[in-house]
């Protein structure tokens, strides 16, 4: 088995995951894309484990660990998505703009309560 084949497949999967993370609005779809990226990593790990013939099976064991972590991540991520959905009634990533700087438009006579918080 040439190493190039699985590794190239993994690179393509990773890039597709990147596209999904960047382009999808729905938070659950973003999570799915993250899963794609994790799987690409897994495939990579397995391919190099086979190539190196590691006696300790480091690559495959690490793959197992990544799968476990991915499961935990999906659980937590969905919990967060649900919490966001409860408060905002939406899971569209590009409508969650709380990171933006509050642009103050100074209005005379009224203290800007929003900017202070």
């Amino acid at each position: 088995m040439h190493v190039v084949y699985p590794v190239v497949v993994s690179a393509l999967l990773f890039s597709i995951g990147v596209y999904g993370v960047l382009a999808r609005r729905n938070a659950i779809l973003v999570l799915m894309s993250v899963e794609l990226m994790l799987n690409a990593v897994n495939l990579n790990l397995v391919a190099f484990d086979v190539w190196l013939g590691d006696r300790l099976h480091g690559g495959q064991v690490l793959t197992l660990f990544v799968i476990v972590i991915a499961a935990a991540e999906v659980g937590l991520g969905l919990a967060i998505v649900l919490a966001v959905f409860r408060t905002r009634r939406t899971v569209d990533v590009d409508r969650l703009r709380a990171l933006a700087e509050v642009v103050r438009t100074p209005e005379p006579g009224r203290p800007d309560g929003e900017g202070a918080s």
Partner: peptide, 17 residues
């Protein structure tokens, strides 16, 4: 510059990557 700072996390990640 502030136009880029619109709070959309996806945009930030795009720039980062």
């Amino acid at each position: 510059v502030r136009l880029a700072q619109n709070g959309n996390a996806q945009l930030y990640v795009t720039g980062l990557l």
